[in-house]
């Protein structure tokens, strides 16, 4: 009988209010146990204050072959970055 527990991806929000961050994966029979297992596996050193788990099979990922069309167009939008604009020192901190 094949009984491997499903794979879950684990996301943890740390102490300082940042976004949940992917930390790794684990196996669990259901979502409740996945959260408990994540607590035991991934917060042994006081790493987190909030846990998300999602079954790995439910994650949709962008395709690597789309890398060009997806990400390169933003490279040319240099005006989105503050350093694009030359402001004289006399104008003060901005």
């Amino acid at each position: 009988m094949k009984t491997e527990w499903p794979l879950w991806e684990v996301f943890i929000r740390g102490q300082h209010g940042l976004n949940h961050r992917h930390v790794g994966s684990l196996h669990a029979p259901d979502a409740e146990m996945a959260i408990k297992n994540a607590r035991d596996v991934y917060t042994r050193r006081n790493e987190g204050v909030s846990i998300w788990v999602v079954e790995a099979a439910h994650i949709s990922a962008s395709s690597p072959s789309d890398k060009g069309p997806l990400y390169e167009p933003s490279e040319s939008k240099v005006y989105r970055h503050p350093t694009f604009f030359d402001i004289p020192d006399e104008a003060g901190h901005m």
Partner: peptide, 23 residues
């Protein structure tokens, strides 16, 4: 020793991304 179990788990997880299951 518990950390070692954890390290095994992380590594199995890395291997699983290559299309092989932990079992």
């Amino acid at each position: 020793v518990q950390d070692e179990a954890g390290h095994g788990l992380y590594l199995y997880g890395a291997a699983e991304t290559l299309g092989v299951s932990r079992d």
